[in-house]
Design a protein around this nucleic acid. Structure first.
Ligand SMILES: [Mn+2]
Ligand SMILES: [Mn+2]
Ligand SMILES: [Zn+2]
Ligand SMILES: [Zn+2]
Lengths: 139, 139
DNA sequence: TCACTTATTGCAAGTAGATTGCGATTAGCA
DNA sequence: TGCTAATCGCAATCTACTTGCAATAAGTGA
């Protein structure tokens, strides 16, 4: 785990516990957003003794600090979390069959945002964009 | 309620009951996507005797037939339903304070879709795009 | 019009994911 | 090493939604 991450946790008044370290370890080594229970399953495989509730609480804490991002994908009934660290704003595509999720390192919505603000008089905070379909294996 | 709607329901082997008619009535007269329980509240105001479960089941049935569309908005913990009838593919913006939802009658993603298919080798089925921010009243 | 078939309904119970209460544990610091 | 508050595990709770089942009623057609 990167030192900067540990520093940010300490700076926010939170503590670096074994379980929190394990949660961060999994998040950092996974290339797609994980649900709390998927993350819990990973930890069990690594023989990390942890309660599911603790996974939930840690993810919440890390989200509050701003170290992880929580997302909700269409046609997916769980929240998912991914590290913010080093990953720019991006979107996702998810396979309808096997559930595989991949990053889309692009965002076509800068211009559109100001157009929407003009037309709706809303002030836009953020957006979520996500594709679903069939991955190469499942086609 | 439009006759075409009734026809489609009958054509699918389903029946047009009082409750189903009431559910459709609310959906047709509401300009934003409703959650099952919001819809249930509307019906109670109209003194329609109905069980929440029946609202869920009707929305499911109408979705299966293809008369309504089910959507899930970011930062919103319920599904929402809107009539498909006469409404082209579009997206939404939602106020973070009051929850107001408005249609965005645009979609900038046609070109992007083929680009994504080339780059990821996924076959894209659909996408969801949604903005959140602050509505004029809540700014 | 009326009986028959089966879609639909209300009510109760059950799921799944996530949250909360609380007493026990432990990280970080003096 | 001892103190204190953050964190933990466990059980209970919550919310949105689904399912089982017996009662009801929409549509068909004799
Ligand atoms: Mn990602
Ligand atoms: Mn809409
Ligand atoms: Zn797949
Ligand atoms: Zn608002």
């Amino acid at each position: 785990m990167k030192t900067s991450v540990k520093d940010e946790i300490r700076a926010s008044g939170k503590r670096m516990t074994r379980t929190r370290q394990a949660v961060l370890g999994v998040l950092e080594s996974t290339k797609y957003p994980l649900s709390p229970l998927e993350l819990y399953a990973c930890l069990q495989k690594q023989n990390v003794a942890i309660d599911p509730v603790t996974v939930y609480r840690n993810l919440n804490a890390l989200k509050t600090i701003g170290l992880v991002r929580r997302i909700k994908l269409h046609h997916d009934d769980q929240f998912r979390y991914e590290m913010k660290e080093g990953r720019a704003h991006h979107h996702h595509i998810r396979c309808r069959i096997c559930g595989k999720i991949e990053d889309l390192l692009l965002c076509p919505l800068k211009k559109l945002t100001s157009m929407i603000e003009r037309e709706t008089r809303f002030l836009v905070g953020d957006h979520s964009l996500e594709f679903s379909g069939w991955c190469p294996k499942c086609q």
